Amino acid sequence: MNKKLIAAILLPAALTLGGCATVSKEDLAEVRAIAEKAAADASEAKTMAADAGKEAAAAKTEAGEARAAADAANRKAEETETKIDRMFKKSMYK
């Protein structure tokens, strides 16, 4: 290819890219503000997740206690049913 043609294509492209590469202080301040807001939001989300984890652990403990109480009540009901069944069978033999 012709060197002049290559220069004619590359020079405007280089100038265009060079113009995009400059960043103003206002742009940096805006990016910094966005980053700080994102960091604050992430910190808040982390705190909320920790609180949710604590609540979930408490709910799991309560559910375990409720299950234990239900199991105890079920055992008691089965014992009572067995006693009633024995009493009924005894009364049938008399």
Results as ranks from 00 to 15, higher is better:
residue 1 M to K: 09
residue 2 N to V: 09
residue 2 N to W: 13
residue 3 K to V: 01
residue 4 K to I: 06
residue 4 K to M: 09
residue 6 I to V: 08
residue 6 I to L: 14
residue 6 I to C: 05
residue 7 A to F: 06
residue 8 A to H: 06
residue 10 L to P: 00
residue 11 L to G: 02
residue 11 L to S: 04
residue 15 L to W: 13
residue 17 L to T: 03
residue 17 L to W: 07
residue 20 C to N: 02
residue 22 T to A: 03
residue 22 T to C: 05
residue 24 S to F: 04
residue 25 K to C: 03
residue 25 K to S: 11
residue 26 E to S: 07
residue 26 E to P: 01
residue 26 E to T: 04
residue 26 E to Y: 00
residue 27 D to G: 00
residue 28 L to N: 03
residue 30 E to K: 09
residue 30 E to C: 03
residue 31 V to M: 09
residue 33 A to C: 08
residue 33 A to K: 09
residue 39 A to Y: 11
residue 40 A to N: 07
residue 40 A to H: 01
residue 41 D to E: 08
residue 41 D to W: 02
residue 44 E to H: 13
residue 47 T to S: 12
residue 47 T to L: 04
residue 47 T to A: 05
residue 47 T to M: 05
residue 48 M to T: 06
residue 50 A to F: 03
residue 50 A to M: 04
residue 51 D to M: 08
residue 51 D to A: 15
residue 53 G to I: 01
residue 54 K to P: 00
residue 55 E to Y: 04
residue 55 E to R: 03
residue 56 A to C: 10
residue 57 A to Q: 15
residue 58 A to V: 14
residue 60 K to A: 15
residue 61 T to H: 08
residue 61 T to L: 12
residue 61 T to N: 15
residue 63 A to D: 05
residue 63 A to I: 08
residue 63 A to K: 05
residue 66 A to I: 06
residue 67 R to E: 07
residue 67 R to L: 04
residue 67 R to D: 02
residue 67 R to V: 08
residue 68 A to W: 12
residue 68 A to I: 13
residue 69 A to C: 03
residue 69 A to Q: 09
residue 70 A to D: 14
residue 70 A to C: 10
residue 73 A to V: 05
residue 74 N to I: 03
residue 76 K to R: 10
residue 79 E to P: 07
residue 80 T to G: 02
residue 81 E to Y: 15
residue 81 E to L: 14
residue 82 T to V: 09
residue 82 T to E: 10
residue 83 K to Y: 07
residue 84 I to H: 14
residue 86 R to T: 09
residue 86 R to I: 02
residue 87 M to L: 13
residue 88 F to I: 13
residue 89 K to N: 06
residue 89 K to W: 07
residue 91 S to T: 12
residue 93 Y to Q: 04
